[in-house]
Design a protein around this nucleic acid. Sequence first.
DNA 1: ATGATGTAATTGACACGTCAAACACCGAGG
DNA 2: CCTCGGTGTTTGACGTGTCAATTACATCAT
Lengths: 152, 152
Amino acid sequence: MPGTRRLPSRHELAMWREFIEATELLRTAVAARLQEDTGLSMGDYTVLLALSEAADRRYRSSDLAAAIGWERSRLSHHLGRMERRGLIRREHCDADSRGSWISLEPAGDRAFHAATAPHLRAIRELFVTALTDEQVAAAGEVAAALRRHLTG
Amino acid sequence: MPGTRRLPSRHELAMWREFIEATELLRTAVAARLQEDTGLSMGDYTVLLALSEAADRRYRSSDLAAAIGWERSRLSHHLGRMERRGLIRREHCDADSRGSWISLEPAGDRAFHAATAPHLRAIRELFVTALTDEQVAAAGEVAAALRRHLTG
DNA sequence: ATGATGTAATTGACACGTCAAACACCGAGG
DNA sequence: CCTCGGTGTTTGACGTGTCAATTACATCAT
């Protein structure tokens, strides 16, 4: 594998720094906006979205973790916090007593529905309108290439 | 401001999700590699890099925070952890007794120098080689546009 | 049945990040 | 001098993320 041990050029390094810093900025800006507008974190929103879209509006914990691409223990910790706030509920699973069903509490359902429009607006204002249509497409292609490279 | 309250299209939303997930993947992959290879976190590396490049190899805490774009309290917490590990030192500042000088300990200097090449290689392997030259340039432009939009 | 092996989910310890409050000190105006 | 508003830095509380270990159950081979 030729080139694997080569170092990035000055220009490539500059692109890396610009990229990593800007994406961090974007992430925190959107997260802060979501928090202000709705009291939810990005993690909360991700979990609530997945539960809302689930076939029967519930998930086995492991399946939920897989669906949103999280590690199991990360999800477990997060669900603990969401449960304390009354956003979701854990129920015993009859078919497999090791497992549990995760479902929305009414408050979680309400919070998610109230959050959707503001969150999408924030995405538009902070991400979409920052870029030309070509740049949005380019961002998508870059992201897809990175994902293939990192997971494939 | 027309369009500010409009919602993103399905396509724009898909690009957003792809983008935010891929950048998260990239960040954690590079961080994990740095940790394995060198025992340093991205934060450690950022701080050590800034100190190494400082004119007299030291910084006032606030200036360091500004230089790397961190909040003051974030830096303070991080410096506490790095100090415990013997990577940096805090010294009393004569000119202003509220402040302190942050400088490298020998161990921090060594750790940084040992980390540079592996880290740059990881950046190359995980970021640069994932993309074509055009995509690297596009990523840089997207990042620059986002930064202008978010900070400007 | 029993015991090895695997899987579902949680836990504990710890690093990291943010916010608001606290602390210690500066420098200027009365 | 002194006190008062501003600045440099730290602290505490808490949410978040990772890793390794644990708990509790399922399953399969014998």
